[in-house]
Structure formats: structure tokens, C-alpha cells
Simulated scan of single mutants.
Amino acid sequence: MKSAYVVTFSLLCTLVAPRAALSVDYPLPPPGSRLIGHNQIYVVPDDKKNLEYIAEKFDTGVLLLLEANNTVDPFLPKAGSELTIPSQMLLPDTPREGIVINLAELRLYYYPPGGKHVEVYPLGIGQLGRETPEMVTRIIQKIPNPTWTPTANIRARSAAQGIKLPAVVPAGPNNPLGRYALRLEKGGGEYLIHGTNARNSVGLRVSSGCMRMRAGDIKALFSQVAWGTRVQIVNEPVKYSVEPDGKRYIEVHQPLSRNDWENPQTVPITLTSAASKFIDNPLSDQAAIDKAITRRAGYPVQVNTGADGAKKQEVRPVNKHRRTSELTEQRSTTQGRDHS
């Protein structure tokens, strides 16, 4: 698991009241820049809401909140405490086209045609042993109101736990794929980006390889993407940028663990040659970078020589809106790797 909190949190946190999800929409930065957004500070009210409620309120993921706030109670944040909402980030080092998923940060980036903005969504990904693979592929099917046909492997795993799955789960509120699904070409069409009836699983490593989104988020994404849209899935726990004004940033996430006993907060991170070159540059503050790699806060930290790399980042409100459209309803049978 990426975090020690994953299993316990997904089992113990209570469901929150339904609310409309919000896509987070950022203007694209100028050429040569990868920095978008600003972190926000949220003062926890005395409303007895759990961390999943706050994550959904800001359309982010639970693990992202835990990275940014490593001392927060994952079940019931203390009233009056301040939480950093990690809504500042560096764009992944990929073409700004179609859908980009960075597994290490459990985020999906969508670049609509026109090149003016990017939409960022949290998502759930494959659990340990059933990982979501890195790939470059495309959307080959858009499926509203999908049914779910469990694969043989899923049926066998469920049977071993004493759960007998039906041959087909019809479309509806109890369907593990939610109301919308996007099928990817690679993997024989087994990998999907879809909704879920397990709302607390978004932002965690819990699926059988597919990628889950909140209901409002998948509806917004589904309404915009076209058949053939490019999809790139990467695994970048370390992102970095030299901005046009000369500021140097590094953003470090906990890497995806490879076994049950690995601690993602302390396991060594494998750096690419380009990241190593950025770190070794004399304009980079080695102490600030070492601190960022140790802390793994999941948001950008400035690491220029002579700059205070540990200082709190500027916080501002983020422009948030929801995009929806009415879709033609049609039924289609869907077979996927994911079971919730």
C-alpha cells in the first residue's frame, strides 16, 4: 500500500452525505513553466466530519491530504486545526494532450482541446499485486450506464473470501463501475476509467487495476473526452521544474510500495537521470532538496540556493467549477478488471 492508512481508512471511515463533486480547473502556465495553482488553508470546523469529507469538498484525495498534513488524525481531524489543501502542483513531464495519469500522486490531468487550461481530478488506482500499469494508449469506448461482468480472476478471489459474485451486475446505484466508463485500448480493453459505488475508495490504492473517479468527476470527464483521446499513465513520485523566473521547485510524493512491509515514507526513491541532474545543479539547495525528499509533502517546494525551501507556500483560493452536460443514455455490457 502507498500509505499505512489505506486499508484502515477505507474500512473504517464513514460515508459522507452526497454532494456534487467539483472539477478543479487551472489555466495552463506559460511556455517553460509547469507550476499551477496555489495551496489553500482550511480551518477544520467543529462538525465531526472525517478526512474523506474534506477531501471530497476540495475534490482531492485522502492520501494527498495525509501527505500534506502528516500529523492530522486520518479519521476525525481536530476542530480548529489548520489543514493544507495541496492544490498547487507541477504538471507531469508529459505532452499536454488528452488524459495524463500520474500513479504516484493518484491524480488525473485532462487537457481539453484548445490548450488553455487543465482539469485535475483525484482517482483510485490498482492495489498492491494488481497494479495499474504505465502505458500510452487511447480511449476506444465510451459507455454510459455500464453493466459489470466480473472476470474469472475477480470471481475466484471473491469466492476464496466466501463471496459469490453474480455473472453480471446490472447498471444502477449498486454497480461497481458507476454510471460512466471509458475503456482503454491496451490490455485487451480490460482497463477502464470509471465511476464507483465505493465513494471512499477514490484517492486510494484499492482497485484491481482500473481507475476510479467520483460520480461528478467521471460525468464531467465523460462529457468532454472523445473516442480516440490519448491516455498516458506514468509513475512520477518526484516532479521538478525550473520556472521562467528562475525559481526551482521540487514536488515529492510517497512512492508506490512494492510489498506489504515497505514503508513509502522512508523507502528510497529511485531518481531519473534528469531529476538527478536537477538536484545536483549548483543552483539547487541540497539541504532543501534533502528535506523535501524526506518530508514527501506532495506539493511543490522552492529549492533555489539561498531560498527558504522549507517556508510555507503562498496560499490562495483556487477557481473551482463543475462541468456537466446531458448525455444520451444507452446501455452497454462492460467487462473490466475492477470490482468496485
Rank of each mutant, 00 (worst) to 15 (best):
1 M>E: 10
5 Y>E: 12
6 V>W: 08
11 L>A: 13
14 T>R: 13
18 P>W: 09
18 P>T: 08
20 A>Y: 05
21 A>Q: 14
23 S>A: 15
27 P>Y: 03
28 L>E: 08
29 P>S: 03
29 P>K: 04
31 P>T: 12
31 P>E: 15
34 R>W: 03
39 N>F: 01
44 V>H: 07
48 K>V: 11
52 E>L: 09
52 E>Q: 10
59 D>Q: 11
66 L>M: 15
68 A>K: 06
70 N>S: 14
75 F>D: 01
75 F>P: 06
77 P>A: 09
79 A>D: 11
80 G>F: 08
81 S>I: 00
82 E>W: 01
83 L>H: 13
83 L>S: 14
83 L>E: 15
87 S>C: 07
90 L>C: 01
91 L>W: 00
93 D>A: 05
98 G>S: 11
99 I>K: 08
102 N>T: 02
102 N>L: 08
104 A>P: 10
108 L>D: 06
108 L>P: 01
109 Y>N: 03
110 Y>L: 05
110 Y>I: 02
111 Y>E: 07
112 P>H: 07
114 G>V: 07
115 G>I: 04
120 V>I: 08
120 V>L: 02
121 Y>M: 15
124 G>A: 14
128 L>V: 10
129 G>D: 05
129 G>K: 06
132 T>Q: 09
136 V>A: 12
136 V>W: 06
137 T>R: 00
138 R>S: 14
138 R>G: 04
140 I>K: 02
141 Q>T: 06
144 P>L: 01
145 N>Q: 09
147 T>N: 04
147 T>Y: 02
152 A>C: 01
154 I>Q: 06
155 R>E: 11
155 R>A: 12
157 R>Q: 13
161 Q>A: 02
167 A>C: 06
168 V>L: 09
168 V>W: 04
169 V>R: 08
174 N>D: 13
174 N>T: 11
175 N>Y: 00
178 G>Q: 02
179 R>F: 00
182 L>I: 01
186 K>C: 00
186 K>I: 01
186 K>P: 01
187 G>T: 07
188 G>K: 02
188 G>E: 02
189 G>Y: 02
190 E>F: 00
192 L>M: 13
192 L>D: 00
194 H>G: 09
196 T>M: 10
198 A>F: 09
203 G>I: 04
204 L>C: 03
205 R>S: 12
206 V>C: 05
206 V>N: 06
209 G>R: 01
209 G>Y: 04
212 R>F: 12
214 R>K: 04
218 I>L: 02
219 K>Y: 07
220 A>D: 15
227 W>A: 09
228 G>D: 13
229 T>H: 04
231 V>I: 10
233 I>E: 01
235 N>L: 07
236 E>P: 06
239 K>L: 14
240 Y>V: 10
241 S>H: 10
242 V>L: 15
243 E>L: 11
244 P>T: 03
245 D>V: 00
249 Y>H: 10
252 V>K: 06
255 P>S: 11
259 N>C: 05
263 N>P: 11
265 Q>K: 13
274 A>F: 08
274 A>D: 15
277 K>Q: 15
278 F>H: 05
282 P>C: 05
297 A>E: 08
302 Q>G: 03
302 Q>H: 01
302 Q>T: 09
307 A>F: 15
310 A>Q: 15
322 R>N: 12
323 R>G: 08
323 R>P: 03
323 R>M: 08
324 T>Q: 15
327 L>W: 02
329 E>L: 13
333 T>L: 03
334 T>R: 10
337 R>W: 01
